[in-house]
């Protein structure tokens, strides 16, 4: 009888285990169903032309649903390591979301500052934090330079250099 009991337990547990393995594998399919759709991923690349930008004036573009700050620096704004240089022009480019909790800071040209209305964080024109709570500078999105155009979503050489230097975020 004892032998039978063991055998019964073994088969019942084997079946339960086998079913559980199938269940875990099917979780993979379920996970895949939650993934962003291919069309969403394909739309993750945006090309913007920044040749027409006016110095000192903030342009806001859209990439992956997020605002992208494009600010051509005026001659009196100091050069910075985070600048993106195209020809003679220097640009500040970043994702326009406060690194604190994701609100969009407003640009004040007279002060040359980005001020976040939500919790009062302030960034300078290089995206560096001037006043807390934001814990880190505005994030530079992955980009590739294509002449005077900027392809957002791709990691070009200039981006990789910034990233290696730890300057993108």
């Amino acid at each position: 009888m004892a032998v039978n009991e063991n055998r019964r337990d073994f088969l019942g547990m084997a079946l339960g285990g086998f079913t559980a393995v199938g269940g875990i594998i099917s979780l993979g399919a379920m996970k895949a169903s939650w993934d962003p759709l291919p069309s969403v991923k394909a739309a993750g690349f945006t090309t913007i032309d920044i040749s027409g930008a006016k110095a000192g004036q903030l342009n806001v573009e859209k990439w992956r649903g997020k605002p992208i700050f494009v600010l051509k620096k005026t001659p009196d704004m100091k050069p910075h390591d985070r600048d993106i240089v195209i020809g003679k022009d220097r640009f500040h480019i970043s994702i326009g979301l406060c690194t604190h909790l994701g609100c969009i800071p407003s640009y004040f040209p007279k002060k040359s500052e980005f001020i976040c209305a939500c919790h009062g964080g302030i960034f300078d024109v290089n995206g560096e934090v001037v006043k807390a709570p934001p814990p880190s500078p505005l994030v530079i999105p992955p980009f590739r330079l294509d002449g005077s155009k900027l392809v957002l979503g791709e990691e070009g050489d200039e981006y990789k250099k910034l990233k290696a230097a730890g300057l993108v975020a």
Binding site: A29, M30, A32, S33, D35, L37, P38, S39
Partner: peptide
């Protein structure tokens, strides 16, 4: 289109 071709395993569901 969306379920049958785009969603991962959408066709299976």
């Amino acid at each position: 289109y969306t379920i049958m071709t785009e969603v991962g395993y959408g066709w299976l569901w």
